[in-house]
Design a protein around this nucleic acid. Structure first.
Length: 203
DNA sequence: AACACGATGGACT
DNA sequence: GTCCATCGTGTTA
């Protein structure tokens, strides 16, 4: 199975997010089936790291689609994102949860409790850190298309109290309705994602 | 140079 | 539910 091409990511982050649930992400000896994601859109999303413009940290978000954006959160947890939209469009999808489907022994050393239901846990399970930020998603980190379409549930994104009320409430967290590896289940509704607004510039 | 603050997780009440 | 470790980054001076 070939990695998903950059064109897969060259769409609105919410559309990409919906298609990433169920996809496979592999890195450093572990493969996970993605169970939970969040879309960080652009422009106008006040929860987006790139909301204030380009910085050294968020530089990969401004680059071409289909690359990783990894950053350190709270001084100890790493967060894995996939960059979406064309160059200059600083959107991304945060990968928040996954079920191990290969490399179980390595997974067990990185996540002794077996849990992979949060973004810090997921990056730890894959052995990723900020050194991997900017890498294309067809090498050390590789993503392959899902085989079956999961049933999705949606809810507000987690941990973005600093954002505007509209952005705090936007149901841009998407998860597999049947997976155990999904956090904050009480904050997920049964509704599918709202249709994405046109936030991509015409091409 | 100093400072404030996290797209969290784990321990605990 | 509450508390807080821990440090890179961005902002301000």
């Amino acid at each position: 199975m070939d990695p998903l091409p950059p064109s897969f990511y060259d769409r609105d982050a919410l559309d990409v997010a919906a298609d990433l649930v169920g996809a496979l992400v592999s890195a450093r000896g572990v493969t996970l089936r993605i169970t939970e994601v969040e879309a960080y859109r652009f422009p106008g999303d006040t929860a987006n790291h790139a909301r204030m413009g380009r910085t050294a940290r968020n530089a990969p978000m401004w680059g071409p689609p289909g690359r990783a954006y990894v950053y350190l959160c709270y001084g100890m947890h790493h967060m894995l994102n996939f960059v979406t939209g064309p160059e200059g469009h600083a959107a991304a999808v945060l990968i928040r949860g996954g079920e191990p489907v290969d490399g179980h022994d390595i997974f067990a050393t990185r996540r002794p409790d077996g849990r992979c239901d949060g973004p810090g846990k997921l990056a730890a399970a894959l052995g990723l850190a900020t050194a991997h930020s900017g890498l294309p998603l067809d090498g050390t980190i590789a993503v392959r298309a899902r085989r079956e379409e999961p049933s999705l549930v949606a809810g507000p994104r987690i941990g973005i109290d600093y954002a505007s009320e509209a952005d705090r409430l936007a149901p841009w967290r998407l998860a597999d309705a049947t997976s155990r590896q999904v956090g904050h289940r009480g904050r997920l509704g049964v509704h599918p994602a709202t249709p994405p607004a046109a936030t991509l510039p015409p091409r």
